[in-house]
């Protein structure tokens, strides 16, 4: 790790001010991704603002009948919460599909959203990567690492977002609450948080410099079934090679794009009366596999259809 300084603020305002005061600052919450990347010098913050003890660790009912998950709620805390388990089972399943018990005890809601790709060439710092070094090129393109994007990739980047939790949140139409360095607050849809790579894959979210996520707000649970299913190379403690979240006819796909992939075409097809297989086919018609990741077409078609069938979506309701 490169040397850095460290501070622990007492509240959100102080955290924002501390980060604004030092160029190259980063917020540190659970650290399960940031510290990992700092060890490899993929992340090189000059200053860490430890937000893990900010009073943002509550799970609260919203006036609308949903839940507000504070930014520093841990993944374990959210997945163990009875309100979440009863009303948002897809979210609990998604969180419990990810990482390990130990990691979930540290990883936070906001940190999970902001985790970076697991692309093998991003992690191998001897290879060119436009995320690590804009303009360097992309070793994944033309490489043999297969857990890459089939939707929305660019000539600069074919990496995927590795989160399970975020996929379920996308299907649940979650909102992200954000605080800025000058005291301003705003809320955006989760779908608007993550970006496609385009020509600037190093810019992964729509957060502005100095902004921090303060909460994720879940709207009231949609009518209909929910599920999260994940395919991976071993039974546990492995990143997805493809995943599907369904919540009341809303569909999101994981490990297929630079962001949790909201399957709008599938949703539209379902609304138009398509069956699950037809809905997935509609979504996948715009996929662009690269020869190495073609298996994801069959995987997502089958897994998606199975999830839709299980939840009763697409059976003509």
């Amino acid at each position: 790790m490169k040397p850095f300084t460290y501070e622990r603020p007492a509240d959100v305002a102080e955290a924002l001010a501390m980060a604004a005061a030092v160029p190259g600052s980063r917020f540190l919450a659970g650290g399960t991704n940031l510290v990992d990347l700092m060890k490899l010098q993929i992340e090189q913050p000059t200053h860490l603002v430890d937000v893990s003890r900010l009073p943002l660790a509550e799970i609260a009912e919203t006036a609308e009948g949903g839940l507000r998950l504070g930014a520093t709620t841990t993944n374990s805390q959210v997945a163990a919460d009875m309100k979440v388990r009863a009303r948002y089972p897809a979210l609990a399943q998604a969180i419990l599909s990810g990482a390990s018990g130990q990691l979930r005890n540290k990883a936070t809601t906001a940190g999970n959203l902001l985790q970076r790709t697991r692309c093998a060439y991003f992690y191998d710092t001897t290879k060119p990567c436009n995320k690590r070094q804009p303009g360097a090129g992309c070793a994944a393109i033309g490489g043999i690492y297969a857990n890459t994007a089939i939707f929305g990739s660019s000539e600069a980047c074919i990496a995927t977002h590795p989160s399970d939790m975020a996929v379920a949140m996308s299907a649940l139409d979650a909102q992200v609450e954000i605080a800025g360095p000058n005291g301003q607050e705003r809320a955006i849809s989760l779908e608007a948080l993550h970006r496609l790579p385009g020509e600037t894959p190093h810019i992964e979210t729509s957060l502005q410099p100095g902004e921090m996520i303060t909460a994720v707000v879940l709207p009231p649970p949609p009518p209909g079934g929910q599920i999260y299913r994940k395919a991976r190379e071993r039974a546990s403690y492995a990143f997805a090679i493809g995943s599907v979240a369904v919540a009341g006819g809303k569909v999101a796909l994981g490990a297929v794009a630079h962001k949790p992939w909201r399957a709008r075409a599938a949703e539209q097809a379902l609304a138009d009366g398509a069956n699950p297989a037809e809905a997935m086919a509609a979504e996948l018609s715009s996929a662009k596999p690269d020869g190495h990741n073609d298996f994801k077409l069959k995987l997502m078609a089958r897994l998606g259809a199975a999830c839709l069938t299980t939840t009763g979506a697409g059976d003509g309701q």
Binding site: R118, A120, Y123, K127, I144, R234, A235, S236, Y237, A238
Partner: peptide, 29 residues
Amino acid sequence: LHEYNEVDPRYGSFIAQDLAGYHVPAHAD
């Protein structure tokens, strides 16, 4: 079921370079 590594034809490096990329059996397996 899980274990394999591959050599990148351009660089000669292994694709899996850590225990997140190289899948030895876990308890659940």
